[in-house]
Design a protein around this nucleic acid. Structure first.
Lengths: 351, 351
DNA sequence: ATTAGCACTCAATGGGATAGAGTGCTAACA
DNA sequence: TGTTAGCACTCTATCCCATTGAGTGCTAAT
């Protein structure tokens, strides 16, 4: 076997042992520990030498001279790409997940929330679920509803069960006939269109036809536009933020606070997950690979769910760089399958 | 002046000094400190004697023999009821609040969120804003919208700009005429009713009249019912949870985690705020006065906003028992006024 | 009734001393 | 030549102990 890499098999085995051990114990791991626990058939001195090499190459570091080694970000990176083994979920965990996902949920947002909760429970980290990217959705219905003499409700429904609405207040009298006309026009023009790059038609033209104040028509069109805009926003389901406090790397309150604060910034987290979870493969951002300074001790694992391609949503798990990467991957994979099935059940094949 | 209470004026003054001092410093306060800082014209020995009395009466306690005193929950209780002075907000703070509230917001939920954010920023604690209690709202419109051959969207609008909707999937063919009939019937029966204790009318009767499968009619009625139910739910705007970590009483990670976890339980917090903020006065729950064990080191200040009586919402601030009670009260009062004004602007006088 | 004075208590702080985990290096070995 | 046992060395963590100082309660004097 030929390695396209600077690490020979023995170094790989040792690095893997160090990381596996460290992920479990959170303690710097020394050469003796490895010689004992993992059966590599090597003496501690040999391992010591190899560790010195691994350190020189930047895969591990020493917190101080007389301590064991801990993985560097580069070490983790190599681990997730080359060393990590598939993790088998315990039967008990599988049962928990199945049980939780089994109860039928009819509202899509509750489904996402539930998925997020389960992921954070099973992994013990913070989880993020983003609802599917909904640009290019087909508009199924547009309806104006008269609420009272001074208010009209604009409702826009799109494929996939997405509904947005907006209430308008005005000072004109609009009779039912006018509203009906307007309704018909709106339906005609908008229904069946896709939401991306949809131009709301000319108010002037409508006005001549329906004989209503331009002002009102403009406002209505604005609202429709706004609703369409809102259809494209993704919802965020962020769960288990405080789980972070369970890990010794955040025993320092200042650091913990910093991290919690950044996790509470929904926009930041959303962008992060959205930008990396394009494909159905798993994407890892380890420690300093995140641009954000406050996240240099965190890793984030992301992937997409839903149908490959168009309207895929995203799943992310955030934890300390010392994360149980393989367990997280297995958990996400398993839950993703269940989630996909539920979505098909709710939406059918082409929503 | 006659006191209806076991504390004479001097004891009151000393208790107030202790609490004011402790709120600021978070350190047990000793007799010397009080003799020096607050000009009571008393020697430290005298104060010592009074403090011994106050301790015996349960208003203050000693963490250990040779430490100063800290207020007990009973002490804080007496403080907020009898001793606390009005706090004047700094001009700089007033400016900050005004500036933040000044920009026009057209969506009511954004308004509440903003209010919550400002309160948590100004006070430095966790803030909760509950949208107005909406039971007994009048239903303004009910509309069924055909989305496609197999789906109908039910939309219910109530007074105050509240809109809820639900999507139904079915397997029957429903033509436009039938839907129109159903629409008229629903409008007739439901519009103008109030949401509390509303009985959705008999499906059988409707079925005979409209000639649609009972199944579908039932489902539609269920959805309407569900929407009405959802109208009565209050939204929660919880902000500044991590502020709690700024205070030394939660320097212990275990305690901090416990507290953060309970603050993240929206339902618990909502119930707490809802149950205590009935009137426009301020309600204080100090430490162990909360039933919940995890909150024994937290206090919560609540009050109502909006029009006295019917559809008032609630504001709450949660912090350590060692909270700047008077500053919180002033801040809430000030922001509440601005919030009320904005709501009138958005809704008019009778929404 | 008040207070100065004093003995006493107790947490907090800081300085060794010690233990132990781990390393790097050297020399011996297969 | 690669591997390993052995050893001196390093550095942190922990425990112990003395010291400090803030604060108290009590007593006696004012």
């Amino acid at each position: 076997m030929v390695w396209d890499h600077e690490l020979n098999e023995r170094k790989r085995a040792i690095l893997k042992s160090i990381i596996d051990d460290y992920i479990e114990s959170a303690q710097p791991v020394g050469s003796r520990t490895i010689a004992r626990k993992h059966e590599l058939g090597l003496g501690s001195a040999t391992i010591r030498n190899e560790m010195a090499d691994l350190e020189e190459l930047g895969y591990i570091t020493q917190p101080h001279t007389s301590a064991g080694r801990i993985p560097s970000d580069k070490g983790y990176r190599f681990y997730v790409e080359n060393l990590m083994q598939e993790h088998k979920l315990a039967q008990e965990e599988i049962n928990r997940i199945r049980k939780a996902m089994d109860e039928r949920i009819e509202e899509i947002n509750k489904l996402f929330r539930k998925a997020s909760v389960i992921i954070s429970r099973i992994t013990g980290y913070t989880s993020v679920v983003l609802s599917p990217q909904l640009s290019r959705k087909r508009i199924k219905a547009v309806q104006l509803i008269k609420i009272d003499d001074r208010s009209i409700l604009v409702v826009v429904a799109a494929a996939g069960g997405i509904v947005r609405h907006k209430l308008i207040h005005h000072n004109h009298v609009i009779d039912d006939a006018q509203l009906a006309k307007l309704n018909r026009a709106a339906s005609m023009i908008l229904e069946g269109q896709t939401t991306d790059r949809l131009t709301v038609p000319l108010a002037v033209e409508l006005q001549r036809e329906i004989n209503m104040p331009a002002e009102i028509i403009l406002e209505i069109l604005d609202s429709v536009d706004e609703c369409i805009g809102k259809i494209e926003t993704t919802d965020v389901y962020l769960e288990g933020i405080t789980n972070i406090l369970n890990y010794p790397e955040f025993r320092d309150l200042l650091k913990a606070r910093e991290v919690l604060e950044i996790l509470n910034e929904e926009e930041i987290i959303t962008d992060l997950v959205k930008s990396s979870a394009r494909r159905h493969q798993f994407d890892f951002r380890i420690g300093s690979e995140n641009q954000i300074d406050e996240m240099k001790d965190l890793s984030i694992i992301t992937t997409a769910y839903g149908r490959e391609g168009k309207d895929a949503g995203a799943i992310g798990v955030i934890g300390p760089t010392r994360m149980a990467y393989s367990k997280v991957v297995s958990s996400i994979k398993y839950i993703r399958e269940l989630l996909n099935k539920e979505m098909i059940r709710l939406f059918g094949d082409d929503p």
